[in-house]
């Protein structure tokens, strides 16, 4: 008996059951990678020249100079902050109806497709591209940046809201529906409690993203601290630029810390 059971072997079923395909995919991927790295022309000489240049560049960041451009830095930061806050609030407000429409278990088919389309378009372009577009449309300044960040927020938040609604436990909503609740009451009593903690966490997280993006958006003309940063670079005032970067890092860390706190608190 033990002899027969010893002859039986077992192996975990492979993800791709056909061994030919399995090998073909591995080998194909390996060959492609080899070619890809082959085309990556690395010019060692230039790399060598560049390193000391980078060193000098970095050295000119020190010591950071908070003082001589304090006014414009403060203006930039304040502008970035209001862009961040307004675009997050407006973006989230627009995301709520779009997200509800983009949830398959809530919306009828045509509305679902429409809202998914809106989300897809909003997600297609990164904030920088959107900012360039809006700067062309409405001119330089924080308004263009605000629009870019708002659209970016919709793409991010509406998608995640829709997915969270699709993932909810379907039984309590059924029970609330069975009481004779209207659609909006049903939304408020059965859907909202299930998604709200995560959505608050994501709103804070998006606030953090929007602040970081506001710096990038400013570089292409969308206002805010990014514009100040660009000016500092253009004037070779690297010590001021370093000050700006440090302030950005500090604010991002502060938002990051508080977002963790908020998430724990709403759980």
């Amino acid at each position: 008996m033990s002899a027969t059971s010893a002859t039986r072997t077992w192996k975990r079923p492979a993800l791709i059951s056909n061994p030919k395909w399995r090998w073909a995919i591995w080998i194909g991927a390996g060959v492609y990678l080899a070619f890809a790295f082959g085309t990556l022309e690395i010019n060692w000489a230039r790399l060598q020249e560049g390193l000391p240049r980078g060193q000098r560049f970095l050295a000119s960041f020190f010591p950071p100079d908070f003082g001589s451009r304090a006014d414009s830095i403060l203006d930039g930061i304040l502008e970035s902050l209001w862009m961040t806050v307004t675009s997050t609030v407006i973006g989230v407000m627009i995301s709520i109806p779009v997200g509800l429409g983009a949830a398959r278990n809530l919306a009828p088919r045509p509305i679902y497709l429409l809202c998914r389309g809106v989300v897809a378009i909003a997600r297609t372009f990164p904030e920088v591209i959107l900012a360039i577009f809006f700067v062309k449309l409405f001119g330089f300044g924080p308004f263009a940046g605000f629009l870019a960040l708002s659209v970016g927020t919709v793409g991010f938040y509406a998608k995640l809201l829709a997915e969270d609604i699709e993932d909810m436990d379907p039984v309590p909503p059924e029970a609330v529906l069975a009481t004779g609740a209207s659609w909006f009451q049903w939304l408020n009593y059965a859907v909202q409690p299930q998604v709200i903690p995560r959505m608050i966490g994501l709103a804070v997280y998006r606030l953090d993203i929007n602040f970081r993006e506001s710096a990038v958006v400013g570089i292409v003309g969308g206002g805010g601290i990014g514009a100040t940063l660009l000016t500092a670079f253009d004037r070779y005032e690297f010590d001021s630029a370093a000050a700006i970067l440090l302030i950005i890092i500090a604010i991002v860390m502060a938002v990051e810390y508080s977002s963790g706190f908020v998430r724990r608190w709403v759980q």
Binding site: V171, P172, E174, A175, V176, Y189, A190, P193, Q194, I196, P197
Partner: peptide, 10 residues
């Protein structure tokens, strides 16, 4: 309901 179907966060 079978699994009570309460809204847990309420």
């Amino acid at each position: 309901f079978q699994e009570y179907a309460l809204v847990e966060r309420l």
